[in-house]
Simulated assay, not measured.
Amino acid sequence: MEIIHVNSHHVAQLEQIDAGLPRDGFLWIDATHDEVAADPTAWRETIAKATGTQIYDPHMTDVINLAHPSYFDSTQDYAMVVFRKLALDGTGTPAEPDEGVDTEVKRKIPPALTKLATKPVAFLLMDRALVTVHMANSRTIEAARNRLLEVRNKRDGGQHVLRAPGSPEELMLRLLNAMVDQYLALRQPLTAQIDRWQRALLNPRSPFNDWNALLDARIELRKLDHLCEGQRDAIQELRDYLVDTMENSHNSRTKDLMLVRVNDVMEHITRVLNHAQRLESTIESAVQIHFSAMAHRTSEIMRTLTVITALFMPLTLITGIFGMNFAAMPLLRDESGFWIAMGMMAAIVIVLLVLFWRKRYLDDNDR
């Protein structure tokens, strides 16, 4: 468990939690799911000792639930936000596991889509404290904690001083913004993967056989769509909560700054959601174009076969007539009968070719 004291003058890491909150500033108490799950009762008592706030049992269950979707809830003493962030180490769990699907079966998911594994991060927003619970080795949380600890004392008078967050709400929004930015960084590799599939689907020289991977990609994009919708709903409820609680306790400038940060997080989530929907629509369009191209190719083949059949049908009729076993038939015993029959066949073929050409049955559509 990491305890950081943040105020307007300095940021300090504390070795242990004292009874009660400090006189100025606020506390950031950071823990992992393993630490909380090892002894939830002791952890809750420690938080109550430091902040004077008792966490309810249902929220304790949500804190250690690794499959919990993004959501928001509030009480008279604190607000709780669960936000699913990307698992950059690839060890995350799906936000919405598929029912009836064997999770042991290896799916053919491209590397760009395997990065969509997520982990939950729980935020407990209190009056003068922020409690975060996340999986171990969270790069986002570690990077934010290191940046905070690098904040220099303002009395040093140095330039380019990183401003410490002025409230638990601001710190939480900074963390949420960093988590959402990870989703924005996935747009380029996801788009590149979909573009490769589009070219493969529309390549007439090689048949497309990677249908399982394409289906898995569509499933993952649909999960990303649902995931972003849950995140947007949670942040929207958080925004409403902040507007209601800051109405009388904050000045107008602080309130506006907080709303700007919340709206920025929501705008980033909306961009990821719209991009996921566009990629899913692109896959569906590419599949439809693929089958349309296949149908067009089949139609061209059938047209060629139809023309060949139409050319040979009268020839087959002529050969069938001269193959009848009648005693007396025209041209049958004539020395030039064979060449006359061949000339008739050639003339019929030429007439049919001219007719097909005038009807544009022989046009090269590809050209």
Score class of each variant (00 low, 15 high):
residue 365 N to R: 09
residue 353 L to T: 03
residue 70 S to L: 03
residue 176 L to H: 02
residue 120 P to W: 00
residue 338 F to P: 00
residue 203 N to G: 04
residue 256 D to R: 04
residue 313 M to Y: 14
residue 258 M to Y: 13
residue 34 D to K: 08
residue 309 T to P: 10
residue 256 D to N: 07
residue 33 H to S: 08
residue 147 R to L: 12
residue 253 R to T: 08
residue 49 K to L: 15
residue 352 L to Q: 11
residue 271 R to D: 11
residue 279 L to K: 00
residue 97 P to L: 08
residue 273 L to W: 13
residue 189 P to N: 14
residue 93 T to S: 12
residue 204 P to V: 01
residue 286 A to Q: 07
residue 147 R to A: 05
residue 247 E to F: 12
residue 169 E to P: 09
residue 286 A to E: 09
residue 140 T to V: 14
residue 324 M to C: 07
residue 213 A to G: 11
residue 286 A to R: 06
residue 177 N to G: 04
residue 289 I to W: 09
residue 249 S to H: 10
residue 237 E to M: 09
residue 120 P to C: 04
residue 32 T to N: 05
residue 130 L to I: 10
residue 248 N to S: 14
residue 346 A to P: 13
residue 26 F to R: 00
residue 233 D to M: 09
residue 82 V to D: 03
residue 81 V to Q: 00
residue 65 N to T: 02
residue 143 A to F: 05
residue 248 N to E: 15
residue 105 V to Y: 15
residue 31 A to Q: 09
residue 121 V to Y: 03
residue 59 H to S: 00
residue 318 I to N: 09
residue 178 A to D: 13
residue 290 H to M: 00
residue 168 P to K: 10
residue 181 D to Y: 01
residue 351 V to S: 10
residue 196 R to A: 10
residue 73 D to R: 02
residue 10 H to N: 11
residue 276 A to Q: 00
residue 155 R to F: 14
residue 35 E to N: 08
residue 238 L to K: 09
residue 299 S to L: 04
residue 46 T to H: 05
residue 46 T to K: 07
residue 351 V to R: 02
residue 331 L to G: 11
residue 300 E to M: 09
residue 100 G to K: 03
residue 49 K to W: 11
residue 217 A to D: 01
residue 134 H to I: 04
residue 270 T to P: 02
residue 239 R to N: 15
residue 150 E to H: 15
residue 185 A to D: 12
residue 367 R to W: 12
residue 92 G to E: 01
residue 125 L to M: 12
residue 51 T to M: 07
residue 255 K to R: 13
residue 204 P to I: 01
residue 28 W to V: 02
residue 88 L to W: 03
residue 156 D to K: 10
residue 140 T to R: 06
residue 51 T to A: 11
residue 85 K to H: 13
residue 248 N to Q: 15
residue 295 A to D: 14
residue 166 G to W: 15
residue 74 S to P: 01
residue 334 D to K: 07
residue 324 M to V: 07
residue 288 Q to R: 12
residue 196 R to L: 11
residue 350 I to Q: 07
residue 155 R to K: 10
residue 254 T to Q: 14
residue 348 I to C: 05
residue 329 M to E: 10
residue 317 L to A: 13
